[in-house]
Design a protein around this nucleic acid. Structure first.
Lengths: 132, 132
DNA sequence: AACAATAACGATAATTATTATCAAATTTAT
DNA sequence: ATAAATTTGATAATAATTATCGTTATTGTT
């Protein structure tokens, strides 16, 4: 049975309170400001547990370490190949009816004899960000 | 100036000759059968150089180590969250005119004030494969 | 063909990112 | 308050990848 912990609560609050997609280490520094002896191992453990449970989302861009997103409402992402930062694409999945329809169509058009079941569809754009 | 090398050539041939998306280590074992003292560091170096130059593609799924694809023609992927294997979605970008149109629309609908330029659009489905 | 310049290699060390271990502390149910 | 179970912090270990460096291979030039 899962038990409450101040550390996991603080991690969730921190992650949900920011619009960027921090790495484990970035979260670690932020959380040390709240709970001074918060351990890096605990950050990793909680990130792993929470993303396995689908409470948060792990983002793998291929440009730098893993990043995490507190918003699990389906939405696209954009990775800057220069700095590795990941940004939200708020337009996807919700703003446009067309996009919503489009995403649904993607799942339907998935053609691979190897697929048994689909649980998620992710879209990642790559390019350069305005901050680089 | 880039020079030819038997090792890089063999890597490209191997990667292009298979439909799976091998990890660096998997390629290393295959390549040792062709060039017995092929070094793992060389595998990594060539994979890095070739993907930086856009000759091959690095696939980051978040389930296991990085994988590589010798086919750079735009196409979607499917990751099995159980075994980490990555499969091609051949339907995307080419088979359906609708899908092609859809993907183009995705680029156009990309709404983030942080985007300076977009170089690539990737779609990754997650789920379980029939082999698991 | 020999030569010089330079890029790539193999072997291995180092680094980075992440996971595992375990005794102590915290949480939860009784 | 006590006991059982989970989580933690500190740290060790592992996995994946990158860097180093002396040697080898490739390429352009005599």
């Amino acid at each position: 049975m899962r038990k409450y912990s101040r550390q996991r609560e603080a991690l969730l609050t921190e992650l949900r309170g920011r619009k960027d997609h921090p790495t484990a280490e970035e979260l670690y520094f932020s959380l040390r400001a709240v709970i001074p002896n918060y351990s890096l191992g605990t950050v990793y453990r909680n990130l792993s547990d929470l993303s396995t449970d689908g409470i948060i989302m792990k983002i793998s861009s291929g440009y730098g370490p893993e990043r995490y997103d507190g918003n699990i409402k389906p939405h696209g992402h954009f990775t800057c190949t220069k700095c590795g930062r990941v940004y939200d694409l708020d337009g996807f999945y919700d703003s446009h009816v067309d996009t919503k329809e489009m995403i649904r169509e993607i799942g339907n058009s998935a053609s691979s004899k190897d697929i048994a079941s689909i649980s998620e569809i992710r879209i990642m754009l790559y390019g350069n960000c305005v901050n680089c």
